[in-house]
Design a protein around this nucleic acid. Structure first.
Length: 489
RNA sequence: GGCGACGUGGCCAAGUGGUAAGGCAAAGCUCUGCAAAAGCUUCAUUCAUCGGUUCAAAUCCGAUCGUCGCCUCCA
């Protein structure tokens, strides 16, 4: 099967054929840097990071561009509120953005251009649009003339008349058409300004993406992505600017990720119901968040809740426990014996040999990570069954387990998960829970010792008393062959 | 008002014509002094409702109900 991608422009899945064989040029709209990122951003950038990784895994040479919009009304507003220069706001939140991306294990794109680093390119496009009659200047502002571009709204599949009928925008008398949008904005005194043929000013919101994508990827490129909410107006306006300026197709495949919901409602700044990435990471492991985000298809809405995150944590733990089981079995001395083949071995052999194909089929179908994770769980069950029935294992059986382990690691590399040492993951989760505990670790250890003595002398009443006491404080005791360990419930 | 998406077991979630993946939870078993943990096993004759097309539909068409999104900054 070849890779198929859902294209917002056509509304269906299409076989992916890059412009240049073997190469993919991909642009994803980055953030406007005026505030901390929320988990909606996390979802978008985790999704496109997964896509970037899978394209590379599939053998493509990928050029991935993700920009920073570092000049914008919101940045200026924030700077005025805080009484600091606008570029300090931008610089600060670029640093914060990068901290969040690093925590989420997101790979660094090929290029991370900034809007302010491309003012001449922006001015050149605006100028060309004015010359071609696609744009006009009014008092230092330059607007795009939507009536001149018949394909306008082809991505969001609307028409101008309906838009105007339902428009909630204040009509600006200076515009020829209420839907005309700003390519260039004249600066008021005290605002950041760059020299231009229309006087001092700054770029409008959408133009920077047209300029930067063209510079790094060319006039036509393969994939352009972003959140669903960017379809209109941002991407629609990018199409208008780019195609009007260049006279050729702008993007071949438009990809949009679904929203993160809170209680089935869109999470957004205007609703005020958002969580920042930092808040979420203070409560959940980054890998858990990433696993959760990838457990649904990237285009579906996903509901963020404590219950769903806890379930993701349990599921991820199941996978890590299986990995720990494999690691234990393959590092142990193998036995030189050939016991008869059992059913669990036949099953695992079959699962291992078909695994790569099933994983690729899932991912080739518009990056179906939910299905891909499902195949991992199936392999995990086979591994556990095998481990339960066949022990100790012979050299050839260790090899089978090694292959299973490699398959899970390979999937992990594409999804950006499963890369921790299993013990590290388990310790990390434990450590996180210990923080909120009302009892010191030493005290727990002391009580476990006392209980061990009681058990030795068959004083089970005392033993159970201690166990219940700790359980009341949220500590669960785990009696194993090597003694008693504990964990936070 | 215009446009669009979605509705799958207790919860989450794949599945777009060939007879319901997977996870969480639950129950049973193994293990255990008893438990817990872990592992294994079991768990949707049915896919919002009603019609239609088809040899065959969760999947296609129509209607109805419900939820959500875009049309304003937004990942």
């Amino acid at each position: 099967m070849t890779l198929r991608i859902y294209n917002t422009m056509t509304g269906g899945k299409e076989e992916f054929v890059p412009l240049e064989p073997g190469k993919v040029k991909m642009y994803v709209c980055g953030v406007t840097v005026y505030d901390y990122c929320h988990i909606g951003h996390a979802r978008a950038y985790v999704a496109f990071d997964m896509i970037y990784r899978y394209l590379k895994y599939s053998g493509f040479d990928v050029t991935y561009v993700r920009n920073y919009t570092d000049i914008d009304d919101k940045i200026i507003k924030r700077a005025n509120e805080q009484g600091i220069p606008w570029h300090e706001v931008a610089e600060r939140f670029i640093v914060e953005f990068n901290k969040d991306m690093t925590a989420l294990g997101i790979q660094i794109p090929t290029h991370e251009p900034k809007a302010t680093g491309h003012i001449p390119e922006i001015i050149a496009i605006v100028q060309s649009l004015v010359e071609k009659g696609f744009a006009y200047e009014v008092n230092g502002d330059v607007y795009f003339r939507v009536a001149k571009f018949p394909a306008y709204l082809k991505l969001s599949k609307r028409n101008l008349d309906d838009m105007q009928a339902g428009a909630r925008v204040d009509v600006d008398e200076r515009k020829e058409n209420p839907m005309d949008f700003a390519l260039w904005k004249a600066s008021k005194p005290g605002e950041p300004a760059w020299e231009s043929p229309w006087g001092g000013g700054r770029p409008g919101w959408h133009i920077e993406c047209s300029a930067m994508s063209m510079k790094y990827l060319g006039e036509t490129f393969d994939i352009h992505g972003g959140g669903k909410d960017l379809v209109f107006p941002h991407h629609e306006n990018e199409i208008a600017q780019s195609e009007a300026a260049n006279g050729k197709q702008f993007v071949r495949y438009w990809m949009h990720n679904g929203f993160v919901n809170i209680n089935a409602e869109k999470m957004s700044k205007s609703l005020g119901n958002f969580f920042t990435i930092k808040e979420v990471l203070s409560r959940y492991d980054a890998e858990v968040l990433r696993f959760f985000l990838l457990s649904a298809h990237y285009r579906s809405p996903i509901d963020f809740s404590d219950q769903n995150l806890s379930e993701a944590e349990s599921g991820l733990e199941r996978i890590y426990k299986a990995l720990a089981g494999i690691d234990g079995a393959i590092s142990a001395n193998c036995v030189d014996e050939h016991s008869s083949i059992v059913e669990a071995e036949t099953e695992l052999t079959e699962k291992v040999s078909t695994f790569s194909g099933r994983f690729r089929d899932a991912m080739d179908d518009d990056f179906n990570t939910a299905l891909a994770i499902g195949t991992v769980f199936e392999l995990v069950r086979s591994v556990n069954r095998f481990l339960a029935e066949v022990r100790p294992v012979s050299a050839s059986r260790q090899e089978l387990l090694r292959m299973a382990r490699k398959h899970i690691s390979d999937v992990g590399n594409v999804l950006g998960i499963f890369s921790s040492a299993p013990e590290d993951y388990i310790l990390r989760i434990k450590g996180r829970k210990v923080e909120g505990l009302a009892i010191a670790e030493e005290e727990i250890e002391k009580m476990i010792e006392e209980r061990a003595l009681a058990r030795k002398s068959k004083d089970f009443a005392r033993s159970d008393e201690i166990r219940d006491l700790l359980l009341g404080k949220g500590i669960e005791l785990l009696d194993g062959p090597k003694g008693t360990t504990w964990r936070v419930k």
